[in-house]
Amino acid sequence: MDNTNFSDIKLIRENYTNLKNKLDYISVLVDFDKYGGMDVLRIFDNNILGCSY
């Protein structure tokens, strides 16, 4: 947790919220790729967020 970049978590949350509001439904990982929200690997590279199957 010492090496965690909390600005990355903030960026991921902002991107998720923006995409969810744009689509009017809870977005899934494919939506980030389809609509260019962000690189989904940032989610998996972050140890605090865990894994989403």
Rank of each mutant, 00 (worst) to 15 (best):
M38V: 03
I26Y: 15
T4W: 10
D45F: 02
N15I: 06
R13M: 11
S27W: 13
R13V: 15
D45C: 02
S52T: 10
F32M: 05
D8G: 02
N15F: 04
N18E: 13
D33P: 01
Y25L: 00
L19Q: 03
Y16E: 09
N15R: 10
D31Y: 00
K22R: 14
E14W: 07
I12V: 05
N3I: 06
N18T: 03
I12G: 02
K10F: 14
K10I: 11
D31T: 00
N46Y: 06
R42P: 03
K34V: 06
N5R: 12
D8N: 06
I43Y: 12
T4M: 08
S7R: 11
I26E: 15
N15A: 13
N3R: 04
S27F: 05
V30E: 15
D2V: 13
M1R: 13
Y25D: 02
N46V: 01
N5E: 11
S52C: 12
G36E: 08
C51T: 02
I9H: 07
T17A: 09
F6K: 07
F32W: 04
K34H: 02
L23T: 00
F32E: 03
D39I: 01
R13W: 14
N5S: 13
R42A: 10
K22M: 08
V30I: 09
G50H: 00
N15W: 07
Y35W: 06
D39K: 01
M1F: 08
F44Y: 15
L23E: 03
F44E: 14
S27D: 11
L49G: 07
R13P: 03
Y16Q: 06
Y16V: 09
F32S: 05
L49R: 12
N21D: 08
L19H: 11
Y16C: 10
S27T: 14
I48P: 04
I9C: 04
I43W: 10
V30D: 15
N18L: 09
L41I: 03
N47A: 07
C51A: 05
I43G: 02
L23R: 00
L23K: 00
Y35H: 13
K10T: 07
E14K: 12
L49H: 12
D45P: 01
D2R: 04
